[in-house]
Amino acid sequence: MPRRDFEDDPNAPKANSLVPAASVVVVDSDGRVLLQRRADNGMWALPGGKMELGESLGDCGVREALEETGIHIEITGIVGTYTDPGHVFAYDDGEVRQEFSICLLGRPVGGELRISDESSEVDWFTPDEVDCLPMVTSIRKRVNDWRCGRFPVIR
């Protein structure tokens, strides 16, 4: 389902849902970050998605990384919480979701890169390569927080 991101846009539609979600900065032994090009908006992003009933936040991050990238990961820490009410996602079905994401830190433990119905490309990037990729502001913020060693608790 296509999605459009609005960040601090006075013309953004009003949020009508709040869904807990996890994203993961997955870093390999060479210091590269795992990213996917989202099928719904064409932008590069961290693996992640909404938390399902019956799973922990860590389990959500592990599941989403595997589903979207083919990489098995383990969670090693937390980058921060991102709950900006000025950032909403509008979906074609009428849902307008307020951001509510906990960004975790992880490392790969197996698997092979593959795309999914949610990703059109998946690859590893050095932190410098990330700077040139099209990415929504909130995802770039998470990557930059990790890169700079800033691990905000509340955002």
Score class of each variant (00 low, 15 high):
L57T: 10
L104A: 03
G111I: 02
F125G: 06
M43W: 00
E67N: 09
N41G: 08
V153K: 14
G54T: 03
P13F: 00
E52K: 15
A22P: 04
R147F: 07
A22S: 15
K50E: 11
D145I: 06
D93S: 12
S56W: 01
G58T: 09
D131K: 15
R142K: 15
S23H: 09
C132Q: 13
L35A: 03
Q36I: 09
V122N: 04
W44P: 02
D123Y: 07
F125E: 10
L57E: 10
R142A: 15
D117T: 13
V153L: 14
P85D: 04
G31Y: 00
P10R: 03
E95C: 10
E52Q: 14
F89W: 09
L57K: 09
G110A: 02
L113N: 01
E121F: 04
Y91A: 08
V96Q: 05
G48I: 07
G31L: 01
V79P: 04
Y91T: 07
H87N: 11
E68N: 10
D8S: 13
M135S: 04
E95A: 15
R4E: 09
A21M: 11
D40Q: 13
T81K: 13
R140M: 08
D131E: 14
R147E: 09
L34P: 00
D59A: 12
T83W: 07
E64Q: 12
R114P: 02
V122C: 08
R37W: 01
K50P: 12
E7W: 14
G61C: 06
G80V: 02
T69L: 02
P2C: 03
F100I: 00
I154A: 14
D9H: 10
P2V: 03
T126E: 06
I78R: 12
S29Y: 06
A22Y: 01
C60N: 05
C103T: 14
G49F: 01
V79D: 01
L53I: 10
R114Q: 06
E7M: 14
K141Q: 14
D131P: 00
G110D: 03
G42P: 06
D5T: 12
R150Q: 13
D123R: 10
A45P: 00
G49A: 05
A65T: 15
V27M: 07
A22E: 06
W44F: 11
K14N: 09
P108V: 04
G49E: 01
A39P: 00
D5M: 14
G54M: 08
P134W: 03
C132G: 13
G31Q: 08
V109M: 04
H87R: 11
D5V: 14
L34N: 05
D145Q: 06
Q36K: 15
